[in-house]
Nucleic acid binder design. Structure first.
Lengths: 244, 244
DNA sequence: GGTCCCAATTGATCTGGGTCAAAGTTAGTC
DNA sequence: GACTAACTTTGACCCAGATCAATTGGGACC
């Protein structure tokens, strides 16, 4: 775990939305942090952390997509978080992981050894502050998702998921009004996020396509001609709320 | 809002599980906090905060039960949090409320004016730390709840809710192995928590009673003869996990 | 004690999404 | 370029929970 095998990355490469602690990219912070920080890559499908395991680090996603999942003894699983580039992983002050973390694409993580990170945190109020802010964001997202899970129809659920991914993952294409992105999830992973079966996901994606709300090139490449329409389908306030 | 009309309360009365900042009840902290702190009572049914409103305080529940809810334009509502005594309300660093907060019983809140609280927080790393810990707890609870909403059956949902309330609300009755508590929620509120209709809640409560998993005295007073059985019905690991 | 009101129960029926099954797609791999 | 394996779509049928519609129960108040 301690062998950084990611060479190209340095904090100068942080994606714009990188919100984790290291992401602030202030040189003085970097000096402090470099001693305890390392990069690590995971292949698609690889489990980053098993629920219940001791977790020796915290960190954030640099590139790729990972998921947080919970599983019942009989195998029913529910995704409880989607980790896109810039999202933070880990629970400072806690020893065990609460969820499985699985890479769904190849993932590069920027990790901080936990012990020194916590020491740094208690010496640097600004970091604890930032972490609180990020945790509040995650809490908002989780609660918004409870509304999706508890009260939305299958079609609305799909539309909600698509708009979240669209808002975070759009490849800017300014000579077009359309929003374009790649789905980083299989139909099964989408189902696990939405509390549906993969068949229902497939049917509803087809229905949204048939109704012109989205266009598909292949299975994963999505074009949204009209984001407002998609958000109406999601049942959201058109102003968008604060889902991350 | 500034008129404290709660007289009996002082921090010496904090319930055992009071985990909020003021709850630590160290005399020196109290001296600091007293200048910015007030009590306030709300009647059952009263809305404490409207989603989107500017929120001038943070605080914690001293007694009673309140709920956090989200509502769609068409009226579908989902409860996203249950506030029992000791739970924290508010989002330091945020201006607007993200949810409706509604008192479901008479509620006493211990409130801190937001501005001075935030100043205090930035001067006192220990408070920011504690707040982070509490927010992580809430995040865990929200994510555990996502599993309930997304993947559990109606019967499992009811059993899950009952065990959460049982674990937090039990009136100790040591000459009996049974767990006894009062439901602080109407059937409708339970339905809003569980993503069900009130009719389904009623049916499943009746079914659990018929099957001897619970006993009811009146509509609200619940006796659980065997907590292990209830938790099996909830589909939880018998060790209980970390739901708050 | 009566009656008003609201919470809760119970019944009958309907339907969205689950389940089971089969066939179609796509990307590797040899 | 055929072969495999994993992912996806589509169809047929079913059932858990929603919906609609009466009742029933239980305080609070006169």
């Amino acid at each position: 775990m301690n062998t950084p095998n990611f060479t190209a990355g340095k904090c100068g490469d942080c994606p714009i939305r990188h919100r984790a602690v290291c992401a602030r990219c202030n040189a003085d912070e970097l000096v402090e942090l470099d001693a305890i920080k390392y990069y690590r890559t995971y292949e698609a499908g690889q489990t980053v952390i098993w629920s219940g395991d001791k977790m020796g680090f915290v960190g954030s996603v640099v590139s790729g997509v990972a998921t947080l999942t919970q599983t019942m003894e009989d195998g029913r699983t529910q995704m409880v978080g989607l980790l896109l580039p810039s999202d933070f992983v880990g629970r400072p002050g806690r020893d065990g992981a609460a969820y499985n973390v699985v890479a769904t694409t190849d993932v590069v993580m920027c990790c901080f050894r936990k012990k020194p990170f916590e020491e740094l945190m208690s010496k640097t109020p600004h970091i604890a502050h930032r972490l609180l802010e990020m945790t509040l964001d995650e809490l908002d997202a989780a609660r918004e998702w409870m509304l999706v899970l508890g009260r939305k129809t299958a079609r609305e659920k799909i539309a909600s998921l698509l708009s979240i991914i669209a808002r975070r993952n759009t490849t800017p294409d300014n000579n077009s009004v359309s929003t374009v992105f790649d789905l980083p999830l299989t139909r099964e992973a989408m189902a696990d996020y939405l509390g549906l079966t993969l068949e229902t996901v497939s049917r509803q994606v087809s229905a949204l396509k048939r109704d012109g709300v989205i266009q598909l090139q292949g299975k994963r490449h999505v074009t949204v001609p009209d984001m407002t329409r998609l958000m109406e389908e999601a049942g959201d306030d058109t102003d968008g709320g604060f889902l991350i």
